[in-house]
Design a protein around this nucleic acid. Structure first.
Lengths: 231, 231
DNA sequence: CGAACAATTGATCCTCATCAAACCTTGTGG
DNA sequence: CCACAAGGTTTGATGAGGATCAATTGTTCG
C-alpha cells in the first residue's frame, strides 16, 4: 500500500513542518516491518536511523549486565524513536527497541534529519519539546522509584499508561494490554508483585484483569492509591 | 567585580556562540547571590529565568508529597539550569534548585534565550546535546535504581561524581565533598546505609571519609563493585 | 489436544529502611 | 580559650516490604 507523506504530520516533531518537508522526509524513508518479539535496534548499535512507528506497538528497554530489563517507554503509532543520533555525532542507541506486536515503521537517516534542522528551526523546537517531555517523565519516574512504595508506583504506572495510550472500552472503563511482566518492568518491580497487587485491586473492584489485559474500572480509586490517600 | 561576558563561553550551550551573542546575553543578565541553604527557585514556580552558576555549588532536587527528596543533578560553576522554559511556553520548574554553598549566578529570561535560538541554530543544537545527555543519564540512573543493589548504586554514584566534579587531591586520590544525606539522595537510599557502606569500604582501603567528605583511594576497586565483579 | 506461555498463590528469605542512642566535628559566643 | 550547641556520622537492634523460588492453574493457538 502506498504511504501518504502527509501522515507524517501526525508525528509531534513534524507538526509544524511544511508539506514539502514531509514529502522530502518521505522520499528518504525506508519502510521496515518487524515481527512481534523482534527488534528495531539494540542498545549499543550505531544510531544511524531514527524511526516513526506507522503501525503496531513497541517498547524501548534497557537491560543491565545480568539481563534484567527496565521499560523506558512504550511506543504507539506515529511516535518517533531513536532520534538522538540526529543531535550527537557518532551516537549509539542507549536502549533497545522491541516490537510488542507485528509492526511497521519508517526509517530515516539521522543525518538527514540533522541537516533538515539546520535551516528549519521549528523542527529543532518541536524536537526539543519532545526531549523536554522525556526529561520530565524520567525525572518523575526516578523520584517515584526512589521514594514511593510499590503499590503506589503500580498505580502511577497504570495512570500514566491510561493517559498515554488508554483505550475506552464500550462498557466504560479503560482497556490496557500488557503482561504482568511488562507492568513490572515499567514500575520497577517483579511480575509476582504486580500479580498480587492487581488481584487485591480486583477484589476491591478497582480493576478487572486477564491474560495480557487490565481493565481499569475506577480510575479515581487508582488516583487515591497513587496519592497515598487510601486506608 | 565586573563580569566578563567572554566567560559565558565556558557554558556548554554557548560554546559556539559569537562574541556578540555573549555580550548580548551578558547585557540581559541579572546577577544573583544565593546563600547556602537558600533557593534559586522552587518546583512549581513559573520558569521565567534560566541560570548560569558563576560561583559556588547547587543541586536540583525533587520532593514527593511526604517531603522525601531525590537529588536529580549537582551543579558546578558554568553549568546552566532551569532552561526548559526556553522551549516550553508557560513552563514551570519541575524541580527545586538549592545552593549547597554561598553561590552567585546569572539569571537570564528564558524568553530571551528562546528568541536568540530562532536565528542561531548552533545554540539550539548545543542545548539539544545537553538535553540528550540528561535523558541518557536519567535513563541510566533509572535502570540502576530498578535493577541494582544498593552497594553497586553507591559505587556508580561516586564514580559519576568523580567524572563530573572530582578534584584530584595532592596525595593522589579524588576528593568529593558531600554529606551522607546528599549521597543517599543521589543513589536512592538512606544516609544510614551510605554510612555503613562507606565504613565497610574504608576498612577495605577503597575510600577515606570524614565529615562532608569522601576521598576515593582506589577508583578501580569501585568500578569492580559497580560491575558486581568483587567478592 | 497438547505445547507454550501467562498468571496466581503460598512459603521463605534477604536486603535495606527505620528507630534509637551515642559519638564526632565544627563553629560560636561568653 | 573553653563550653556548648548544632549538625553530621556511626552503629546496633528490629522488622517490614518485596524479591525469589516452586508448584499449580488458566488461557491461547496451532
Amino acid at each position: 500500500m502506498p504511504f501518504d507523506p502527509m501522515n507524517l504530520r501526525r508525528v509531534g516533531v513534524f507538526q509544524n513542518a511544511t508539506d514539502d518537508d514531509l514529502r522530502l522526509l518521505s522520499a528518504n524513508a525506508i519502510e521496515r516491518s518487524i515481527e512481534e518479539g523482534e527488534f528495531f535496534f539494540f542498545q549499543g548499535d550505531p544510531a544511524i536511523y531514527f524511526y516513526v512507528l506507522t503501525s503496531g506497538k513497541a517498547k524501548l528497554l534497557q537491560s543491565n549486565s545480568a539481563g534484567q530489563q527496565v521499560n523506558l517507554r512504550t511506543l504507539t503509532e506515529w511516535q518517533m524513536f531513536g532520534a538522538l543520533g540526529a543531535v550527537l555525532e557518532d551516537a549509539i542507541y542507549p536502549a533497545t527497541a522491541e516490537a510488542l506486536e507485528n509492526s511497521t515503521a519508517l526509517a530515516i537517516k539521522n543525518k538527514f534529519l540533522h541537516e533538515m534542522m539546520q535551516t528549519r528551526p521549528y523542527i529543532s523546537f518541536d524536537l526539543m519539546k519532545l526531549m523536554t517531555g522525556y526529561i520530565q517523565e524520567m525525572q518523575d519516574r526516578y523520584r517515584e522509584l526512589a521514594t514511593e512504595k510499590v503499590e503506589r508506583r503500580i498505580a502511577l504506572c497504570l495512570l500514566r499508561l491510561t493517559s498515554q495510550m488508554g483505550i475506552k472500552s464500550p462498557d466504560g472503563g479503560i482497556e490496557l494490554s500488557f503482561t504482568r511482566q511488562d507492568l513490572a518492568e515499567m514500575s520497577g518491580t517483579t511480575l509476582y508483585t504486580v500479580s498480587r497487587v492487581l488481584s487485591e485491586w480486583e477484589k476491591r473492584g478497582l480493576v478487572e484483569s486477564g491474560r495480557e489485559r487490565v481493565l481499569i474500572r475506577n480510575p479515581h480509586g487508582l488516583v487515591q492509591i497513587s496519592e497515598g490517600l487510601d486506608q
